[in-house]
Design a protein around this nucleic acid. Structure first.
Lengths: 371, 371
DNA sequence: CTGTTAGCGCCTTCAA
DNA sequence: TTGAAGGCGCTAACAG
């Protein structure tokens, strides 16, 4: 027993399907009051639910927004997803979720699947990669996106444009000032921290990570500090943990060496900048497991200001990113511009309200200099 | 310029649409090798992507799984969502996401929206409520689910059945042994903790919270302890924080009172059981803000074992729930049973592999008795 | 094995 | 304002 159809409703109400359609779904034209009521009653009594697939087929638009993330359980993506979800609700659309683990190949699959479902727009979150091994994946993804846009789809990418994508229209990039913010973080830290800096970064080629590393180095330079050494590991907690172990070993070694010859009580203390909060937490856990304390033995800072991590002690210095807003802005960017918009700079790929996204350096206990 | 259609592909390949369909999409019947290749080439060169809406219309099944959560940014739901996502991928389906904030009215909306999209199945996560104010909402939700199931839909609810739902078929409940596990937690804690217990619960009527409260009390009773007082507040971090402030005040008051008359060094220490991890973290933050330390001044335990919170210090005693599995199991339960299944106990609403979901009491530092 | 013929449920011209 | 007719893109019965 399948769901009842518009035709059945119409028949029960004694009108034509066309009329029933007009009253039940928003049409420009308004049927007579009396007839409208009859139709509504019929629909109600049959428990009629319009078939969105059929509607979509007829109108060739689905009311769907596709969201692509690496991993929905990652709080970073979960926060963005919340923003997307909210914006979707404003637009009275539903969100289709795809998680890809970060590979361009899977992202391409997801885009194709969304295209198949005729999603009105697609939001891609998660760092782009410029690594060699992803080169082919990237260009396939770019091609898929191009096609999708050419067919009228709207795309918003968070962070960086997909490498190689050149869609003429409907392709938006929500820029996140990772580099600038990391720079600010560095200069602020440099103001209160005398020791050396070390950066715990993700794999080289992960654009978000690279931006933050670069920005941090620039900030150090502006502050007249020497560049930080960069340790590379996985872009997640366990990567941070690994790097933390390595650093703990160094710190302990330096301490015992400096003990005898030390000038004033020990080696200069290290300030660790992990390119995201989750890595920072991992690094902190590693230090702790090695008997080191923060900020007594080393300072540590992260990036993102993940909400769930705010109760972590010592409170983590970080850069607050308005993750939810980012999701919202990206989603809104894909809403087709209405007439009268001051446009397009002509060259295609337009930025979504540039300048909208901004962050805030947030210094907390984990980087306090006090011995 | 819309996407190209199967008809166009067929024409380019010089075959009928039916044939093209057979080669491009899995059909039982296999076209000739040569013709198949031609079709594939045509499809490739046109960048053909099948229109899932049209396919769905024709086959009356959409390849969609609807997921309903309170809030996708809540790590509890995010973890479940990951499991759902994985199971969906196994079934080669996509997941449609709806977040409702927990109200039955919005959940009903979501179910209707999923029904409109002809989702093959729906997974509902998030605690059910039996509060009076939700009574109407619950019965409307139940009616909507009933209808959805009668039309052939599959539903899985995590935790408790929707109050009042009586769908004869396709309605599954993934039971989570909250009560039993809370009981085990209580008895284990009672073994190492001499002081009194207090429960920080969610609003009365939230079934998950109620189960955990009840189970914990039973566990205490089994251990020969007197029942714990129950504080009610919001089922989230801020609720935990509020309760924590209240408790901190009491603890401090008791301490100053007991000081003079104390037998052995102070009032008996309190062990706080918050019905979920996020509340526990909130409560811990409140205690800390009042200058109290854990577990020195009070012990605290949570429930869920949220991954992101595992690095919290002192490490939180809790009950590990296999959230991801729960999502997976729920999703799989909605997969229509194939012939030859040992069935149905006849009365309809069947449980999804009962006994599959189990948890594990995990005692950590936050409840260590050592002064 | 292939092509033809009907729909799936709805929306949207067009006439009435 | 209302109804009739055609089509959205695809699949599932048939026929050849």
């Amino acid at each position: 027993m399948a769901a009842s159809t518009l035709t059945e409703v119409a028949r029960l109400a004694g009108v034509s399907p066309a009329t029933a359609s007009r009253v039940l779904n928003g049409s420009a034209r308004k049927p007579g009051k009396d007839i409208a009521e009859r139709v509504r009653q019929a629909a109600e009594s049959l428990g009629y639910i319009p078939n969105a697939q059929a509607q979509g087929l007829a109108k060739s638009s689905s009311g769907l927004i596709g969201l692509i993330v690496h991993d929905i359980a990652d709080p970073y993506f979960a926060a963005i997803a919340r923003g997307v979800q909210e914006a979707a609700r404003e637009q009275r659309k539903m969100v289709l979720l795809a998680t890809t683990g970060g590979g361009p190949a899977e992202e391409k699959e997801a885009v194709a699947a969304f295209a198949a479902r005729r999603a009105d727009s697609i939001v891609i979150a998660g760092s782009r990669s410029s690594r060699d091994e992803d080169k082919d994946g990237n260009s396939e993804l770019a091609a898929e996106l191009d096609r999708y846009c050419r067919n009228g789809g709207q795309v918003a990418v968070v962070g960086h444009p997909v490498v190689g994508a050149t869609a003429p229209e409907g392709y938006h990039v929500v820029k996140v000032p990772n580099q600038e913010l990391a720079g600010r973080l560095a200069t602020e830290l440099a103001g209160s921290w005398d020791g050396d800096f070390v950066i715990v970064g993700g794999p080289e080629g992960l654009l978000t990570s690279d931006d933050r590393v670069r920005g941090f180095q620039e900030g150090l330079e502006r502050a007249g500090r020497r560049p930080a050494e960069v340790l590379r590991s996985a872009f997640n907690r366990s990567g941070g943990y690994d790097a933390g172990l390595e650093l703990a070993a160094r710190i302990k070694a330096a301490r015992t060496n400096a003990g005898p010859s030390g000038e004033g009580g020990g080696a200069p203390k290290l300030c660790i900048f992990a390119v995201n909060d989750v890595m920072a937490i991992g690094a902190a856990a590693a230090l702790r497991s090695e008997g080191l304390r923060i900020p007594r033995d080393a300072a540590i800072a992260g990036f993102d200001d993940i909400e769930t991590l705010r109760d972590f002690r010592p409170a983590l210095s970080t850069v607050r990113l308005p993750l939810e807003d980012i999701g919202r802005v990206a989603t809104r960017a894909t809403q087709r511009r209405l007439a009268g918009d001051d446009g397009d700079d002509g060259d295609g790929a337009d930025d979504a309200s540039p300048g909208d996204i901004t962050g805030e350096v947030t210094l907390r206990r984990s980087t306090e200099a006090a011995a």
